[in-house]
Amino acid sequence: MDVFMKGLSKAKEGVVAAAEKTKQGVAEAAGKTKEGVLYVGSKTKEGVVHGVATVAEKTKEQVTNVGGAVVTGVTAVAQKTVEGAGSIAAATGFVKKDQLGKNEEGAPQEGILEDMPVDPDNEAYEMPSEEGYQDYEPEA
């Protein structure tokens, strides 16, 4: 019985440690998101679009440190934060509304985080759909 109880105690310690790591990862992701939003706020009209992409990228980098179902929630929060940063930029006159959601080359930025393969159960990952990809044929 002692062996059984000791095993359960060790398992509990492992769960607590994993929860603490997840909590730490979420806190880091939130900190990076805040950094990115402050970065966007300090940019001029020309830099705002690039700044919004930076927020998304920093958040995406930190999301990889967070495991399990938390990833889905962090990704949703990050996307809403990026959308909010863009709205703030438009409201303050840093950028025109028609410039939001495009990178410096004018290509749409939507789907940055949505296409990231995420499995809350950590069982399997699927690649994003290939609808947006084109076949590449090298020139002879």
Rank of each mutant, 00 (worst) to 15 (best):
G86C: 13
V15N: 00
V66L: 08
T59N: 02
K12S: 06
D98S: 14
E131T: 10
D98P: 07
A107V: 04
T44G: 09
V70R: 01
V71N: 04
D121A: 08
A11T: 07
A91L: 14
G67I: 11
A85V: 07
G31K: 11
A89N: 03
V82P: 05
Q62G: 00
T92G: 09
E137C: 14
D98E: 05
V40E: 00
E57M: 13
K34I: 05
K80V: 03
F4P: 00
F4M: 06
E130K: 06
A89S: 08
K58S: 08
E110T: 08
K96M: 15
E57G: 10
T59W: 15
S129L: 13
A76T: 11
V77L: 09
K96P: 15
F94Y: 13
K34T: 05
E114R: 08
E61S: 07
E123H: 03
L38Q: 03
T75A: 12
Y39A: 02
A124D: 04
E139N: 08
V71H: 04
S87E: 01
K10E: 02
M5V: 12
A107K: 08
E137L: 08
D135N: 13
A11H: 01
G67H: 11
K60H: 09
V37A: 12
M5Q: 02
A17Q: 14
G14K: 06
E28N: 10
E35D: 01
Q79D: 05
N103K: 01
K80E: 03
G67E: 02
E28R: 12
V82C: 12
E83P: 07
V37D: 00
K96A: 13
N103S: 07
E104G: 14
Y136S: 14
V40M: 08
Q99Y: 07
V63L: 13
S42C: 09
P138Q: 13
T22W: 05
P138N: 13
G7E: 05
M1E: 00
N65C: 10
K97R: 09
E104M: 04
A124H: 14
A19C: 06
E126A: 04
E126G: 05
P128I: 14
Q109E: 10
T75H: 01
A107D: 09
V3Y: 06
M5A: 02
E35Q: 09
I88E: 04
A56L: 02
V15K: 00
A124V: 13
A140K: 15
D115M: 14
A27R: 13
L38H: 07
K60W: 08
A140D: 11
K80P: 02
V82N: 05
K34V: 12
E104W: 12
G36K: 13
E126I: 04
Q99W: 07
L38T: 09
E57S: 03
Y136M: 13
A107I: 08
I88L: 13
P120R: 08
A89M: 15
T64M: 14
G31E: 02
V15M: 15
P128W: 01
M127S: 11
E126P: 10
G67V: 07
G132E: 07
E83V: 00
E20D: 06
K12D: 00
T92P: 03
K6D: 05
L8N: 00
V66D: 01
E126M: 07
V77I: 06
G84V: 05
A53V: 14
K97P: 12
V40F: 13
A140M: 08
E28P: 01
A29I: 14
K80S: 01
G106L: 12
K32Q: 07
E83C: 01
K23Q: 02
K102P: 10
L113S: 13
T33R: 01
A76E: 10
P120W: 12
G36P: 04
E61I: 11
